[in-house]
Each structure stands twice: as structure tokens, then as C-alpha cells.
Design a protein around this nucleic acid. Structure first.
Lengths: 220, 220, 220, 220
DNA sequence: AATGAATGAGTCTTCATTCAT
DNA sequence: GATGAATGAAGACTCATTCAT
């Protein structure tokens, strides 16, 4: 059942087994619905051992979030090769991102759905990771503008909104790709590049979409 | 506390009070952490009455999702005026969407965060709503293509991915706008139009971003 | 088992049943060794009901202490008749005290043994009761001195020590009388009056026992 | 922390370290709240070693009680010098008693509070010690009577009650002296001698306090 | 002589849910 | 139409205790 029940293993190994089990249960059931009993059973150990090593449900969840966040950012970092143009770097990052989330759907669920739904201690962990990625994307936009010798004249909040939108689109596509059989990471990345890159290009060339004036019918 | 405790009111009214309370509690605490006790108290009724009217926690949650989903789609529908160009219609829809989510943060939390985090019975409800919106967006893209007398040659799956990305970006921006003081619905909508419309335009003119060939270093 | 299992009784009654059961279990097993399960079973109700009415094990224990402390001080108060001489009042009080503790051994165990052994929240409750009794005894000593038109010249700390000793002796005798078959409350009270009253008399006549000087052999 | 962690020491020494730690923890937390984990850590050894040497929590607690009881009776025995008058011997014994309890508050807590609060196996240990002390006090009273060439005519049970009262008063004063800053062992002993000796004298001279007749108002 | 690894059993506590009135 | 009274089931967490080395 779950992991093979091997006795007496070094602490570090057991701890990883527990985290594996926890990510799976948390990812599938959600934080609150997950029971420590089930996690312990899937890990092939008794409940007290889980508590001995990981202290509490909260701590265990935090440990899961940290491990999965590290794994994801590390995967993206490894995927992005230095040197190429900004759009190529974005492509590389997206490809790594979609590949990783497809391979670790429970980890992605923990980060994307569960951690954000359960209050500050946890949401903060993900926010940290997200901000790292948003910063990376923001930097790419800036680089692209510099490469083209153009001054995008984009106010900071606008850039933050764009990065947020791009990351949100990526997150959404990851869930979609996971749920739709036959959609590969490459296809998801291509869809997003098509969707986003031209818009960014236009913006940087100061050709924004013309926002209409406020109308009396805008209300709720 | 919450609703004024008035005795003997028609069933429909009481039911709405209960749903109001439930949406608030579910939105703030999450499905599992919300307790029927708290909901009943906030609604100003006794717990058995909640069960009499709404059967179970699951049914209550489902009723919340349905009501909030209807309210949101209805708001968007009302916001979109027939006649104008496709991009103007998209703008109108986004504006209505951002306005509504900003005004009903607990309802939005129920739809966006809570319902998707708790398995099939609930996620399906949201998926239905989402598909309606995705269909609306897809239709707009098709209309835009027709209006321009161009044949976008976009395969169906590609369009689905684009719509998914657009909706995901919108959802993400809604959360961002709610969490960032000073960001208005108009600003969020403008950011997204800028981000998305040019990309769609390029696509429809058959100028996609050139996807690089598969590399041996793509793996995880 | 324990109380007859009658269904649907008013809250106040059930609460007393629970306190009865709790005093018995706490008195016999001690605070920590007592289990809420056992208390609920003895009270003839389910555990959740105990929690609904009394919140927590701590609160339940505190409620027990308060009830038993009130009952004891009330019994002593009722036993002491105004008017008579100070020694007669002390006799009356002791008789009431020993009678009550003999009739409510579990309550006395809760107050004397259990409450003092488990940290501040609880010990403080008993200390309050004890101080009330010590104050009563102290007052009696003062009255006795005044009645005899003597000035005892007893420093305040000395009086506190005497009262403490008397109360301690009484507490100890109560336990002894409870544990020794055939010892009545009157006998316990008589023993203590004999033991204590002459010493107090001598003190008030300024004939203290002559304390020897400090010796080098006093150490441990 | 606690004992210095030195490896490979003779069993007897290790055992004392464990008992030191156990007395401290038991004295401060109480029997049930004390955890073997904490005791082992404070003793600077691993838990299995504690079990190897002392078998179980019960046995460990019993060993603590025995050691502290021996230490206390031994201290009193050493304090009492042969030869002097009976009251001087009582004074010596009390002084030794208050001095020892002040120096070993955890040990005293184990004997006075914890051991008596947790059922027969433990209470019996303390009772044995207590009886030894009561016998000593009883003997002193008898000696005093003989010295004065008087026959006290005290029934055995009466003497037992008196000794119980005296010991109870002493115990109570020990706790009071420990808790009240500035009260020395000498002061506590003096208070108790004043309180008790005259009463005992009166009794031996056949001048007991006149117990009133049974009244109809005595009931509870 | 000593310990890191591991657990069965039990504790307090909470929650969704239902009678009886 | 509405509720005070009550509970079965389950969940987080802890502890005394032992095995294998």
C-alpha cells in the first residue's frame, strides 16, 4: 500500500517519503480534508513518526509547499538558458514550467490551489515564489525593450499588472493542459507565446488598445 | 449579528439570508473550515432550519456556487451591449467582470478559490460557468475574424487554449485588483485588453510567434 | 451506570449532573488522569454535550472547584452561629468543616489535593477560598484577644503563620478522619481544639515557647 | 542542559542523575504531566536507558518517592540530638524538617503534593514515611509525659490525631514558608512550637478544651 | 553501555446532523 | 414555522514503551 513498508531507514529518507505522501494527499484532497492518518498510511509509517519528524499538520503543509516551490523554480531556472533573446528565454521558461507542472500535478495543485486557499502562513510561502517568477518576467520585458532600443514608457503598476496577467494565464493554462488529454507542454507554451508576445510588442511600441471613456452604463 | 433577527418570514427571504451568510463564511474560511454553526448564527436562524431549507453542507455550498455563478454571468451579460465591435464587446465584458468581482469578493472567492479546491461535485458547477464564458470569448474571436473578412485558420483546440488563457489572465487580475489597493476595474480591464488584443490580432493575421524546434535539453 | 439515563432534560439540570460526575472522577483519579470520556459516561450523556455546556476540560475542572469551594464555605458559614465566644465559634466552624468534608470526600479531594497540584489557573481558585477561611480564623483570634482585654502583641506575620498552621492541621485531620474508619467529625474537631486553643491562649498571654539560640549544628 | 553529557559512567551515578532529573520534573509538572522524554533529556541520557535502569514510569516515580522520603527522614534524624528535653527534641526535628524542605522544594513537592494525589501505589510510600514521623512525635509526647511524672491518660486514637494535626500543621507551614519570601525555617518552627506545645501541655495536665454537647443544629 | 527508529493506544476536541417539542 | 437538546464519527496530537543495532 503506497510505499513499500521497509523498516528502520535513516531519517532523511523517511522524511522524503512522508513529504511525497503528504504532497499527494494535500494535492488531491486539500489541506483541511487531508487527514494525518491517511498521509501516514500512504507514507508507510505510523502517525507518531510523522509528528516526530514534522511537528504538526501546519508544519507538514509548509514543508510541502517549500519543497514544491523550490522544485518548480529550480526547474524553470534550469530550463532558461542564458544568452538568447528575451522572447526565447520566456519560451524556455514557459516550456520548463508547463513540463514540470505536468509531471508533478499534485505538487502544482498544492502550490496553485491549496496553499492559496488557506490563510496567511501558507499563502505567503507561495507569494514569495510567485514574486520571484513575476520579477523574472518583468525583467524579460525590460530586456526586450532595451534590445529593441525602445523606451516602453510603461508605468510600474502597469508592468506589474501585465506580469500578473501573464503568470495567471500560464497558471490557468497549466491546469487546462493537465486536465485536457493530449495537450502537451509545448502546445501550451506556444499558445501563451502567441497570446502574449504580440500584445507586449504593441505596448512597447506605444500602440495600446484605445480605452473607451467612462459610460453611465458601466455600473453593476 | 449579521441579519436582524426577525421571526416568521417567508421561506424565500430566509433562504436568501442563509445563502448570504453562507457565501460570506465559505468565502472567508473555505469550505471545510466553515462550520454550519457559524453560518446559522450569522444568518440569525437556528441550525435545524438551515438543514430544513438546504439539506446538507454540500447542498448549501452548491447552492452558493450556483447563485454566485448566476449573478456573475448575469452581470457580464448585462454589461455587454450588442452591436459594437468585437473588441468593444470584450472590453464591456471584462469591465463588468472586474466590477462585479470587486463588489462581491466573497462570492468571487467561493467561485474562484473554494469551489475549485474541493473535488468534483463543486468544481463541475464552476466549470459549467467557466465554459459559458469561454464560449462567449471564443465567439467574440470568431466574430472578430469574420468582421475583418479574414480566415484565422485557427484550429479549435488553439482557440480553446487562447480563451482559457484569456479567462485565466482575467481571473488572476481580478484577484490582483482585489488585493492591490487603488487598482480599479477599468485599469484591470485596460491592462488585459492591451495584453491580449494585439496578440489575438497577430494570430488572426497569421503571424504567430515562431516556435523553436524540439531540443534535447527540453526535459525536466 | 451512574445517573439514570433520562433524555431531554433542561440544561441546568444536566449541567449539575455533569458537575456531579466530574467531581467524582476528578476527586478519585486526579485532574490529568481523569478522562472526559469517563466523566461523560458517568454523567449519562455524550461527550459533545459536556463540551457544549462546559467548553473544555479546564473549564469543567474550574467549575467543579468553584462549586465545591462555594459549598464548603457556605456550609462553614451556616455552621457558625453569631454571638457565642470566639472559641465556641471556632468549634462551630470546625465541626461544620469536618462534617462537610466527611460527607463530600470527592469534593474535598478536588479542593485539597487536585486543585493545588495543577498550576495557577486552578490553585488560585482554591487560594481564594482558603484566604477567606484564614481571614475568618484570624479574626477569631483577634476577637478572642479583645474579649480577654489583652493585647497579644502578635506581629501580623506571626498571626498569619498561626492561622496557616491551624488551617493546615484542620485539612490534614479531615483527610485523616476520612481515611480512618470510626473517627467522627466531632472527634476531629475536639482533637484540634485541644491541640490549638491552649497554645493560642499562652501566646496571647505573652508566654511563648522559648526559642533556643542559633546553633552551628543547625545546618542540613 | 541539566547534567553535563558525559559518556560511559558507572551505573550508580547515571541512576542518580536520572533520579535528580525525575524529581525535578515530577515536582514541577506533577506525575501525569511529566513526560519521560523530558526527564531523559534533562538527565542527559536517551530514553531507553532510563527504561533499562528504572523499568517504567511508575517505578521511576516510586524510586523518586523513596529517595526523597529517605533523605527527609534522615535529615530529621540527624537534626535531633539525643539527651535534651522532649520539647527541645521536637524543636530540633521541626527545624531540620523546615530546613530540608526549603532546600529541596521539588523533593518536597513530590512527597507532599504529587505522591498523595495519584492513588495507592504511591500514597502508600509516603504513608510509610509519615507514620515513622508520627511515631517519633508520639514517642516525644510520651517522653514528655514521663519526664513530668504525669500520666496523660490520652487514648491511643487521641494521640494519633494530635500527631496527625501536628504533622499536618508542619506540612502546611512548610508550603507556606516556601511560598512566602522572607520566612525562615526558624520562624516556621517557632510558630509551630508556640502553637502546639502549650496545647499539648494542657492536655497532659488533663485540662482539655470543654467540648459542647451535641446540638440539633450540627447537621450539614 | 547506549541509542536512533518506531508504534499502539488513548486524549481532548469539533463537526455535521437529527430528534422531540 | 422553528428550536433546544443531543450524538456518532472522526481528527489532531501525545505518550509510555520497545526493538534492532
Amino acid at each position: 500500500m503506497g510505499a513499500v513498508k521497509t523498516k528502520r531507514m535513516p531519517r532523511a529518507v523517511r522524511e522524503q517519503q512522508m513529504l511525497d505522501a503528504a504532497v499527494r494527499i494535500f494535492g488531491q484532497r486539500g489541506y483541511m480534508a487531508a487527514s494525518m492518518d491517511e498521509i501516514a498510511e500512504l507514507a508507510g509509517v505510523s502517525k507518531p513518526l510523522v509528528y516526530l519528524y514534522l511537528n504538526s499538520k501546519e508544519d507538514l503543509f509548509t514543508a510541502c509547499i517549500r519543497r514544491e516551490a523550490s522544485a518548480l523554480t529550480e526547474a524553470v531556472r534550469r530550463g532558461v538558458r542564458q544568452g538568447p533573446s528575451a522572447d526565447r528565454q520566456l519560451w524556455d521558461g514557459l516550456l520548463a514550467f508547463f513540463t514540470h507542472t505536468a509531471r508533478h500535478p499534485d505538487g502544482w495543485s498544492v502550490l496553485h490551489l491549496q496553499a492559496r486557499t488557506h490563510g496567511e502562513p501558507f499563502a505567503a510561502e507561495v507569494t514569495a515564489m510567485r514574486e520571484e517568477i513575476v520579477a523574472f518576467v518583468t525583467e524579460l520585458i525590460a530586456v526586450a525593450a532595451r534590445d529593441a532600443h525602445r523606451d516602453p514608457h510603461l508605468p510600474e503598476r502597469e508592468v506589474a499588472g501585465l506580469a500578473e496577467a501573464l503568470v495567471g494565464a500560464a497558471e490557468s493554462l497549466a491546469a487546462w493542459a493537465n486536465a485536457t488529454p493530449g495537450v502537451t507542454a509545448r502546445q501550451a507554451a506556444a499558445t501563451l507565446m502567441n497570446f502574449a508576445w504580440a500584445g507586449l510588442g504593441d505596448l512597447m511600441e506605444n500602440r495600446p488598445w484605445p480605452v473607451p471613456p467612462v459610460s453611465s452604463a458601466d455600473g453593476d
